[in-house]
Amino acid sequence: MQTLNAMPWATNFWLAIAGLLLVTLVAGLWRIWRGPTATDRMLAAQLFGTTGVGILLALSQAMQQVALIDVALVLALLAVIAMVAFVKRMQGPSS
């Protein structure tokens, strides 16, 4: 039972995964730019939070930094706050 990280190419594999996720994140920027409503933009930001957690987890393996899992944990906890603020505070006319 060999795990993935025993392989010599594991670092590159994890980096490739992180890069792939980063590409999807950059593609998501297009939705933020286009809109058309504020809600669509917040949805894209929500997806960004999750993708960011994924990238951090992949990087934690690629860079052999255990602390990055903590960063991912914090991001997972706090990414929802912006969404809650949006829903509670933008009670006025939608832009």
Partner: peptide
């Protein structure tokens, strides 16, 4: 570490489900 990883998933599940509800409700 394994527990932390599972916790991250669980938190994202709870948060995203609620956020989806909130934003649909808002819409």
């Amino acid at each position: 570490q394994g527990i932390k990883l599972l916790l991250i998933w669980l938190l994202v599940l709870v948060a995203s489900a609620t956020a989806s509800y909130l934003i649909a409700h808002y819409l």
